[in-house]
Amino acid sequence: MSVELNHTIVWATDREVSAEFLAGILGLPVGPVAGPFRQLTVANGVTLDFATAEGGVPGQHYAFLVGDGEFDAAMARLRAAGVRFWADPFHRVPGEINHESGGRGVYFADPDGHNMELLTRA
Rank of each mutant, 00 (worst) to 15 (best):
S2H: 02
S2F: 04
V3T: 12
V10D: 02
W11R: 14
W11Q: 13
D14E: 10
V17F: 06
A19L: 03
E20L: 10
F21T: 05
L22C: 07
G24M: 11
I25F: 03
I25C: 00
L28N: 05
P29M: 04
V30R: 15
P32I: 07
V33Y: 06
A34W: 08
G35I: 12
F37G: 02
R38W: 03
Q39I: 02
Q39W: 02
L40V: 10
A43Q: 06
A43R: 07
N44I: 03
G45F: 08
G45D: 05
V46M: 14
V46Y: 05
T47S: 15
L48S: 09
L48K: 03
L48Y: 04
A51Q: 14
A51V: 10
T52W: 12
G55V: 12
G55K: 07
G56I: 05
G59W: 03
Q60D: 08
Q60A: 15
Y62M: 08
A63N: 09
A63E: 04
A63C: 13
F64D: 00
V66Y: 06
V66A: 12
E70K: 03
E70Q: 12
F71N: 02
F71T: 03
F71P: 07
A74Q: 04
A74Y: 04
R77N: 13
R77L: 06
L78S: 01
A80I: 03
A81E: 09
A81L: 10
G82W: 00
G82C: 04
R84P: 06
R84S: 15
F85H: 12
F85P: 00
D88I: 04
P89N: 05
P89R: 04
H91W: 03
H91C: 08
H91R: 13
H91F: 13
R92Q: 15
V93P: 01
G95D: 08
E96S: 14
I97F: 01
I97R: 10
I97Y: 08
N98K: 07
S101K: 14
G102I: 09
G102A: 13
G103Y: 12
G103E: 10
R104L: 03
G105E: 05
G105A: 08
V106F: 03
A109G: 13
H114Q: 02
H114L: 13
H114N: 15
M116L: 15
E117P: 00
L119R: 06
T120Q: 09
T120H: 09
R121W: 00
R121D: 11
